[in-house]
Amino acid sequence: MTLDTALQLTIGGLVSGSLYGLVLIGILLIYRVSRVVNFAHGQIGMVAAMCAFFLVPHFGLPIAVALGLGLAVAALVSYLVDILVISRVTKIGSGFDLIATLGVMMFLTAIVELVASPKSFKFFSLGAQIEFTFLGVYFNANDLTVILTLAVVLGLLALVLNKTGLGLSIRAVAISPEIARTTGVNVQAVRALVWAAGGAIAGVAAILIASKVTLNAFYMTPFLVKAFVAGIVGGLDRFVRPMAIAVGLGLLESWVVYWLGADARIPAVFLLIIVVLGVLPSKYLQDLEQRP
């Protein structure tokens, strides 16, 4: 194996890992402020891609405008999911929130299938045709966009969370909504904002993913599954560890496919999950469920 191939594989892995990471960010943010595992997250993102895809031919909008509108719709849908469903469910008891997001996921999937018909489409290429070679490694603008987007989103998030009053409020709500409320934080507004932002980031992820795969009502599922794998193994109440696992998963897949063929991707990933969770010392398993 040449150095070129190794670099190429690494870049490829980084790209898919970044996509997993982009899907995961919203899941982690939403989990932080509302302690809900949002199964509908991927499909909320899909709504953005689908909207953008149908706005362009129907209204003759420029792609950039359509993408922007798609993101706005995803943010709105995410916000509505929290207001109409999740915030009402969590009052009933624990465990139901998960099921409710599952229902929302099925609902969104069914609607998109109905509206878009169960066909598959080719999404906008978003720079995939702009190709160049650097140091013997093949790049295209789309791949670079993915990696850059993750970096920008993470950077912005770090900035907002650590350097602004809003970030402080978000962190306060994450620790305890009750205490945050007593210190004058508008908990509802913070929650709404985080859900909307989570939806928009899901939209960004879904749009980038759509440009790489065939578009249909289910294209987000494998990405959502990988994001959840990273989140659950790494701990949904953490940030760095699950994000690193998400990127790591992408790298792993890329190398496994090279060494063992595309068929080996699924068994490699899931066997690894089983082995890792099977041998992980108990203390790494305790951050998640032990909360009162």
Partner: peptide, 19 residues
Amino acid sequence: NLYPILSGALLVLIVLVLP
């Protein structure tokens, strides 16, 4: 084709109204 929509909506409704 309406069945999947009902399925999702019903699940949400059940969780909200008849958990």
